[in-house]
Design a protein around this nucleic acid. Sequence first.
DNA 1: GATGCGATTCACT
DNA 2: GTGAATCGCATCG
Length: 218
Amino acid sequence: VAAKGPAVFAWMGRPAAEVATVAQSLLGWHVNANGVTVRLSEVEAYGGVGEDPASHAYRGQTRRNTVMFGPAGYAYMYFVFGMHWCLNVVVGAPGEPAAVLLRAGEVIAGADAACERRGGAGRSRDLARGPARLAMALGLDGSADGTSLVDGSGPIKLTEPLAALDRGKICCGPRVGVAGGASIPWRFWVGGDPTVSAYRPHVPRQRTRGKPVVGESG
DNA sequence: GATGCGATTCACT
DNA sequence: GTGAATCGCATCG
């Protein structure tokens, strides 16, 4: 099945319903970009239209999530909270907008470059511990949106690890920071791996601005 | 056309 | 451990 052109992996083009399985299979894979390589230790799965309230594709195709509706193997960069970028991998077949959010990993090469981009993070496990940190360590932003991760045409390269990950170490649980669909255990990580981000239950927005600090009724 | 919320991280206590 | 800062998109009228 060796064919020229873009690499084809087992996780590509699967039905959106299998996105959870696909997400697990990506744990341990290597992501290389801009001179930095990260070994994935934590990911999250996002489903398709009408299936997953937390997914950007839930309400159908829009200008922003167009990449999710395309073929597998492409990057979907999402700008969040007005200051951070997150890297997703489109994994579904065309028309089936399944994606995997790369949440955390261990920097196994290019620590110097990653450290530099991450400012004062130092050469610690925090270099790529968290979705935005991971994207930052890899030097990625919106310009990488829609680029291929498998054919070498873009800045990002996703490769299979030499040694397969021990499936027994894979853990699952609720996704982080997601209100809708939080009960779906679509977050996967490598058990015992120190680079896995801390679990934070969905924090309800507390607006303190524009409202007087009352409530202390007499 | 205007408003509210979101897949987060950093700094301070 | 908790609060603050931030931009774009989607929704409602």
